[in-house]
Simulated scan of single mutants.
Amino acid sequence: MNRTLANISAVPGEVKPQKRRTESARRPSFRQRRWVKGSLLPAAVIALWELGSLGGGIDPLLFPAPHTIIAEFWNMITTGELQSHLKISLLRAAAGFLLGGSIGLFLGIFAGMLRPVEDYIDPTIQMLRTIPMLALTPLFILWFGFGELSKVLIISLGAFFPMYINSFQGVRSVNAKLFEVAEVLEFSRSKQITKLLIPEALPNILLGLRLSLSFAWMALVVAELMGAERGVGYLIQDARSFMQTAVVFIGVLIFAAAGKLSDSLVRLLERRLLKWQDSYKGKN
């Protein structure tokens, strides 16, 4: 009886909430669809590469087949060789990024807030950031030797400039009227930084964080190629000397994967911290 009344009272064409939820749960999410779309081009390139290698149209010395690279990758994992090199590279990258990124963040904020600080340090920084990293690397080796200090300093230099520039730009993009209101409310300098300046400049700071991480990885390659006995960069250089092209590809792919992973983590942080920002997302 109750079931009959429920069927009679149901509006024709109405979708029950439970059924709607089930159908929406079965549909792939936006992130899953985006991940699939982003994987199509690399998958197509790898498939064509593999077919060309099997057909003999690609020189295996210059472009080893993907299955050969995968086999060599697995062999390096099982022997533990890859983990040892990757560990030292991650430590170098983290130390250099933390040193250079933190200094760039603080100097960018203070130069943006205080005009005298900008007048003293900004011209020198703008001049130094135009010097190619490869031109400075021999000097760092001469000054600090081939040890870890020179490598960490090279990485920190690469991470410093993007963080400084974007932090500075983030501070200068804050609405001046907000500082006037803060002065009327008698905010202290520290309160202005934590309650006003950092939240308003956060989009630029997070952009600087993304760029700083990418530049740190690039500087890591330069540091390890110039003079190192361990690390992924050294692995690439040593494999190039012995024409082990598959190992070179493995090293390049490791840097690419590490850079993509770090960038994705920062983008996740952006989505969490910038929920309030109603920015343009692009058309479907």
Score class of each variant (00 low, 15 high):
L41H: 06
P64N: 03
F110A: 14
G100M: 14
E23Q: 08
F140N: 07
G147N: 14
R129L: 03
S84D: 13
L142H: 07
W49M: 06
F73R: 05
A94T: 15
E50L: 15
S84F: 01
P28H: 03
T137S: 01
L114V: 07
A43G: 13
L54G: 10
F146L: 13
P60D: 09
S53I: 01
P138L: 12
G38E: 13
I121W: 01
L114A: 12
L136R: 06
P66H: 03
S39T: 10
R27D: 04
Q83H: 10
I77G: 04
A25F: 15
A71L: 10
I125Y: 07
G145P: 08
I58P: 10
L86H: 07
A94D: 00
F144H: 00
L86T: 14
P60Q: 02
T79Y: 02
Q18H: 09
L48N: 00
E72F: 01
L54N: 12
R129N: 10
S53K: 06
F63M: 11
S29V: 00
F63G: 00
I103S: 03
V36C: 02
G96A: 05
G147L: 12
V45C: 09
F30D: 02
K87T: 13
W49F: 06
I125F: 15
I109L: 14
R20G: 04
K87G: 07
L136C: 10
G108W: 07
F146H: 01
I46A: 09
P64C: 03
L98N: 02
R26G: 03
M127K: 08
R26H: 04
P132R: 12
T130D: 06
R92L: 15
A47Q: 10
A71N: 11
T137I: 04
G101C: 11
G104W: 04
M113P: 01
I46G: 02
F140S: 05
L51I: 15
W49Q: 08
W35V: 05
R26Q: 12
V117L: 07
M133W: 08
V36T: 03
R34S: 12
A93E: 08
T137V: 05
K37R: 05
I69G: 07
P42Q: 01
T78C: 02
G80P: 05
S84A: 10
L134Q: 13
L134Y: 10
R20H: 05
I141P: 12
Q32H: 00
M127V: 15
I109W: 02
G56L: 11
F97N: 03
I46Q: 04
D59H: 12
L51W: 10
Y120K: 02
Q18F: 09
F144N: 10
G112V: 08
R115Q: 14
W143D: 11
A93S: 15
A135T: 12
S39N: 07
H85A: 13
D59G: 11
T124E: 03
W35Y: 01
W74N: 08
L139H: 09
R31K: 01
F63Y: 13
R129M: 14
R115A: 09
E118N: 09
L91T: 13
P64W: 02
A95F: 06
T78P: 00
E50G: 04
W35S: 14
Q32D: 00
S24Y: 11
G52P: 01
T124Y: 14
R115G: 09
L134D: 04
E118V: 01
L114W: 15
D122P: 00
L90Y: 03
K37T: 02
T22G: 11
R34V: 10
